[in-house]
């Protein structure tokens, strides 16, 4: 059923009619006695060049530090706050040890995953029953997995978030349906802040964006009952990040 052109046109022309009368800039009221000057855009990064906009935002958002170590510390602190399990692995051997530990601690029997350098390594290490989603999957079966193991596009220190897409993390559902989401990331994937995350998306995907991109910040949560925090509302109850 197409939009009746009438509604589309009606809305657009109502907008144009309405906008014929300009509105005062934020911070000013209509009818103020001071002359309405032409709007200044010194702060509006929407129309600034990307670089200038990014550096401006950085001066307002929460500080992140300069070095990788500071970012890693910040990520660890944010993870604590968010109840994300953050494990910084010394090397690949350590990653394997940590995976083994997770397996026995959580009693994993079956895992869901996608093909990828790090996830393949995990599958090999764990030696469990695997459900690969790449060629399509049955949602009921995926739900029965004890964990979903994925890669990601980046980690964001500022907010303790994982940036992932349906391309990098095995589709839309793998990271959200199983009760435990495990992300394996490379050290160089740790970014300082949100502006850097958006820059990365633009550079990496140009205008060929995957149909779903997003930030995951902590395990699924709700505060809908008396504003008391409960984890695992609909998505994973546990979130583990292994950084190697």
């Amino acid at each position: 059923m197409p939009t009746p052109t009438s509604s589309r046109e009606a809305i657009l022309s109502a907008i144009r009619r309405a906008l014929a009368v300009p509105a005062p800039k934020p911070g000013h009221h209509a009818g103020e006695s001071e002359p309405q000057q032409e709007p200044q855009f010194e702060n509006t990064f929407s129309i600034l060049g990307q670089e200038a906009a990014t550096s401006q935002k950085r001066t307002w958002l929460p500080p992140v530090g300069e070095s990788w170590d500071e970012w890693a510390d910040l990520f660890a602190a944010n993870s604590l706050d968010l109840k994300t399990q953050w494990i910084l692995c010394a090397d690949e051997a350590d990653l394997k040890t940590q995976l083994e530990k997770l397996k026995s601690e959580n009693g994993w029997k079956k895992i869901g995953l996608h093909r990828g350098e790090l996830t393949d390594l995990a599958a090999e290490t764990l030696g469990l029953e695997n459900l690969y989603v790449d060629g399509g999957y049955d949602a009921h079966e995926l739900e029965k997995c004890d964990a979903g193991i994925t890669q990601c596009d980046a980690l964001v220190a500022q907010t303790g978030s994982i940036l992932s897409t349906n391309k990098s993390a095995g589709g839309r559902v793998l990271s959200i349906l199983p009760p435990h989401h495990v992300v394996i990331a490379r050290r160089e994937q740790l970014l300082p802040d949100l502006p850097a995350a958006f820059e990365l998306m633009q550079q990496k995907y140009g205008d060929k964006y995957p149909s779903l991109m997003g930030f995951i910040t902590g395990p699924s949560r709700t505060g809908d009952i008396e504003r008391i925090l409960v984890l695992g509302a609909h998505g994973p109850k546990k979130l583990t990040i292994l950084c190697v």
């Binding site: 964006y209 995957p210 395990p219």
Partner: peptide, 23 residues
């Protein structure tokens, strides 16, 4: 909500695209 970022912030740019797993 007094959060640095909410749990899930999702950008959707279309239905399942060619070559994508699900959606």
């Amino acid at each position: 909500a007094g959060q640095a970022l909410t749990g899930y912030n999702t950008l959707l740019g279309g239905p399942k695209q060619e070559g994508e797993i699900d959606g």
